[in-house]
């Protein structure tokens, strides 16, 4: 695990997100919820590729701005009955600084796909 300090917590609005561009071009969305927990997902909705960083954050979910799919910030899985998953990254807050491991992306098992 190589955590990279990327910004301060205050740089991300509560119930908002910021975009982090990896040097290979992949964009990672860093979310902050109302309890100051941070989450990181690839900035690409599993449905039609919408930028999740631009969605409305609520609870521990984000609503994609394109077609309103609700994606869980915890595991990147779409809320049923929609089915899909997006890469999730390790991110943490350390003394007010947000630290991301930009190469930690993994897809959660699609447990949510089973109805």
């Amino acid at each position: 695990m190589t955590y990279l300090p990327i910004c301060t917590l205050d740089d991300i609005p509560a119930l908002g997100a910021r975009r982090f561009k990896r040097d290979d071009g992949k964009v990672i969305a860093i979310f902050r919820n109302a309890e100051d927990k941070v989450f990181a997902l690839q900035d690409k909705c599993p449905h039609k590729g919408g930028p999740l960083s631009q969605g409305i954050v609520f609870g521990e979910s984000v609503a994609c701005p394109l077609h309103n799919w609700c994606i869980s910030l915890n595991d990147g899985c779409a809320a049923l009955p929609d089915v899909g998953v997006v890469e999730k990254f390790s991110v943490r807050v350390n003394e007010g600084r947000v630290e991301l491991d930009p190469w930690s992306g993994e897809l959660a098992p699609m447990a949510c796909a089973a109805e």
Partner: peptide, 19 residues
Amino acid sequence: DPQSRYINERSHANIQKDG
């Protein structure tokens, strides 16, 4: 509260299908 607005009203432009 801008965070309670749809992205178009937060960025004051219309989001398109490619972002």
